[in-house]
Amino acid sequence: MAGSNQLKQYIAFGIDDEIYAVDVLFVESIERMARITRVPHSPYEVLGVINLRGDVIPVMSARRMLGYEEKPPSDATRVAIVRQDEYRVGMIVDRVTEILNVPQDRVQWGVEALDEKRKVAFSGLINLGDKPVMIMDIPRTLELLLN
């Protein structure tokens, strides 16, 4: 049943005017912005840690990861809790736009990061007509950031 028009779900989020997406399988939950405690000596992209229902979880700024200017959070700001192996981190995004159901033949695979400033790995591109949506490669991105 590995048909090419099999649907796959992505969570789409916006940073300024761009749209990015993450495979829904990596996303544990979407949370409202919480109070952040700064952690000294942490990587630039990591803003600190938050209290997620009793667990302490590091959060990183998608803006910083993608090379945007830092901007104060708004009501729309969300934290996507991303899980991969032993890593469990929050990713702060400007807004979560929608859940995309994308047939696999609409995804172009093998797209590399666009410029050096971005500490993010991409695994593909969804062409939805009006605007391309970049798919973040969560395992590789976490590795790039934290190792």
Partner: peptide, 13 residues
């Protein structure tokens, strides 16, 4: 509470 694997390299905390 542990800081999690992501920040395990920070040794002063």
């Amino acid at each position: 509470k542990p800081l999690g694997k992501a920040l395990s390299k920070i040794n002063i905390i």
